[in-house]
Simulated assay, not measured.
Amino acid sequence: MKNRLYFFFGCLFVLVSCKQTPKKEVVTTQTESLVKYAKGFDIQRIGNKTKLIVKNPYLDADETFEYLFSSDDEKGSIKTPVEKLVVTSTTHIPMLELLGGETSLVGFPHPKYVSSVKTRKLIDAGNIKEIGQEANLNTEVLLDLQPELVVAFSMQKTNKSLSLIEQNGIPVLLNGDWLEETPLGRAEWIKFFGVLFNKEQQADSIFKSIEKSYLEAKKIAQKATIKPTVLSGAIMSKDIWNLPAGGSFVAQFLKDANTNYLWKDTEGKGSLSLSFESVLDKAQNADFWIAPGYFNTKEEMHNNNQHYTQFAAFKNDHIYTPNLKKGATGGVVYFELAPTRPDLVLKDIIKITHPELLSNYELSFFEKMK
């Protein structure tokens, strides 16, 4: 629910002989990064083991975490494939399913918000137990499930629930996919899960397919001769308008869709906090309003703040939201699936802003707000 080098090249170790000592043979050990876009993790193969390195598991992290995996039951490594695990974010569910690993899931926090039909069937059948909420896990229930590992995310360095789980001998893998700065960087975390199931090649193949689809869509968007202007966000509290900063992954989507996001030149990877007046001054005549906060209808927006009606996108019915497509129990599909399928998000934005370029495509996440 939920920042560093692009490539992490292996080190070269050379044994050099000392004076009056027989010269030793030079030994070279090289590890190769298997990650292309993501900045928060890396995968390295070391002999018959795989090392998973998580470099940015929470905001302002100043430490890295390394985990060894092996198909052999070796001391100091986690045995793969993992047959019983717990994950803690809905964004993990689609990656498990693409790898055929959803049946290994034994526990999940607040499963009401899981939208996927396949995983919902397992929840409804009692195969996946509720283990509290993300920030307050029910460790008693979780420990009774005896998972082989827990994939968790943490907002800060200290987490009592996760510490207790580790103290009981269950490895906790921190997952920082939510901190990635680019759409493809987020999607590449499927390789993280590929390690757990001994399906690294399959994970790589799935990601390459998503990458190919994304880059093809981006290329199509470049055919547009007009760049429509785009506004995003809304007033969330205390008359402060929150919208994506110019360096955010949302701004990257809008750039790759060949639109003119009006705050594209601002600094920062997260969100900006602006006054209503400054947003109105800059975006009153914007062509499109994409993702207007938590609102579902124009009436909700008007009732919240009648000044929203001053925007051209409001008047012209050019407001699109991802909040309307939900699973059977109310979970928003976008929040679950979009990080894994950025190609579909990009195609949605292209369809909205350049409909002539994808005439036969139907929106996957967004809908016009009514």
Rank of each mutant, 00 (worst) to 15 (best):
F9E: 11
L12S: 07
S17L: 10
T31A: 11
E32H: 12
S33R: 01
K36A: 15
Q44N: 08
I46Q: 14
G47W: 04
K49W: 08
Y67N: 01
E74L: 15
K75H: 09
K79I: 07
V86H: 02
H92N: 05
H92R: 02
G100C: 10
G100Q: 03
T103D: 15
G107I: 04
V114K: 08
K118V: 08
D124R: 11
A125P: 00
K129I: 15
E130Y: 04
L145W: 08
L164V: 04
Q167E: 12
G169N: 15
V172Q: 00
L179H: 03
E181T: 06
T182C: 08
P183K: 13
E188K: 01
I190D: 01
F192H: 00
L196R: 03
K208P: 03
A217Q: 03
A224R: 14
L243C: 11
Y261D: 02
G268R: 14
G270H: 04
L274G: 11
F276G: 09
K282M: 07
F288V: 01
N296W: 06
T297G: 15
M301C: 11
Y308R: 15
Q310N: 13
N316C: 05
H318T: 10
L324P: 08
K326T: 14
G327Y: 02
A328F: 12
G331V: 05
G331F: 03
Y334L: 14
I350E: 05
F365L: 06
